[in-house]
Simulated assay, not measured.
Amino acid sequence: MGYTFDDVAVVMGTYNEEEAVATVVSDIEEVTDGRAEVICVDGSSDCTPDIAREHGATVVRQRPQGYGVAVREAVLTPDRPVVVTTDCDDTYPMEQLPAFLDAINEGYDVVSGDRLYHGAEAMPAFNRFGNAAFAALASILMGTRVHDTTTGMRAYRRELLHDIEWTENTGLSAELLIRPLMRDYRVRELPIAYRERAGETKLDPIEGGAAIAKSIVKVCLEERTGLR
């Protein structure tokens, strides 16, 4: 028998997302009939954690230390066997959660949302170009074609998340895809719709982009050589 939403935790790092958190958590509740666990690892200075709790999420408070630190805590916290990541900016389609769960039930270890497949018109052009460049760089270094290395929406088998040591911060999204691929886990990219974000982005596109590119190179070389 396959996994159901009773076996799913949807997790996210949150930082001052009071404009979107209610919508995101409510969408998860609606799509999963309230059966999925929702966890926010939060370092906000606004009302984000209070709103998340009011809508049924479990909130783990954390001193702000960057995107990857929060998401790493989020993916390692649940006890449920399927862990789904998302961002708390209302850009990701929670209505596609059933498709992600179906793919896990088909035997995939990681199901990764491909934002660029449909064009991602809601994404700023500079970001679209950067994300395509990250995917091209990772594809060359891995020798395996990938289309979106930095998506925030993925489903994982919990044991994989605990079997691999995660090291990156800004580049954690790429690492969460690259290491499983290079260790021969079963990975599927699933096209997803991408919406315009609610609220302001926290990532500087130049500084953040450089950090992500550096992480991609570092992680690929580590996996190729077995050295850290």
Results as ranks from 00 to 15, higher is better:
residue 5 F to T: 08
residue 5 F to R: 00
residue 6 D to K: 03
residue 6 D to C: 10
residue 8 V to Y: 06
residue 12 M to G: 13
residue 18 E to H: 11
residue 20 A to E: 12
residue 20 A to I: 04
residue 25 V to E: 06
residue 26 S to C: 09
residue 27 D to I: 03
residue 29 E to G: 05
residue 29 E to V: 04
residue 31 V to Y: 08
residue 39 I to K: 05
residue 41 V to G: 04
residue 41 V to S: 04
residue 42 D to A: 00
residue 43 G to D: 05
residue 45 S to G: 11
residue 45 S to K: 05
residue 46 D to H: 06
residue 50 D to R: 02
residue 54 E to L: 03
residue 54 E to K: 06
residue 56 G to P: 11
residue 57 A to M: 00
residue 60 V to L: 05
residue 62 Q to G: 00
residue 62 Q to V: 05
residue 65 Q to K: 08
residue 67 Y to H: 00
residue 68 G to P: 13
residue 73 E to M: 13
residue 77 T to W: 10
residue 78 P to I: 07
residue 79 D to N: 15
residue 79 D to G: 15
residue 80 R to K: 07
residue 80 R to H: 12
residue 81 P to G: 05
residue 83 V to Q: 01
residue 90 D to I: 02
residue 90 D to R: 13
residue 91 T to H: 09
residue 92 Y to G: 08
residue 96 Q to H: 14
residue 96 Q to W: 10
residue 104 I to K: 00
residue 104 I to G: 11
residue 105 N to T: 10
residue 106 E to K: 14
residue 107 G to M: 11
residue 109 D to E: 08
residue 111 V to D: 12
residue 115 R to K: 15
residue 117 Y to H: 15
residue 118 H to R: 14
residue 119 G to E: 12
residue 122 A to S: 13
residue 122 A to L: 04
residue 123 M to S: 11
residue 130 G to T: 08
residue 133 A to V: 10
residue 135 A to K: 07
residue 140 I to F: 10
residue 143 G to E: 14
residue 145 R to K: 04
residue 147 H to N: 14
residue 147 H to F: 07
residue 148 D to E: 15
residue 152 G to A: 11
residue 154 R to K: 14
residue 156 Y to W: 09
residue 160 L to I: 01
residue 164 I to P: 15
residue 167 T to E: 07
residue 167 T to Y: 12
residue 170 T to I: 06
residue 171 G to N: 07
residue 173 S to E: 09
residue 175 E to Y: 07
residue 176 L to F: 09
residue 177 L to H: 02
residue 179 R to K: 10
residue 183 R to G: 15
residue 183 R to N: 15
residue 183 R to S: 13
residue 195 R to D: 12
residue 196 E to G: 12
residue 197 R to G: 07
residue 202 K to M: 06
residue 205 P to M: 02
residue 206 I to C: 09
residue 207 E to R: 09
residue 207 E to I: 07
residue 208 G to E: 08
residue 217 V to N: 01
residue 220 C to A: 06
residue 223 E to G: 13
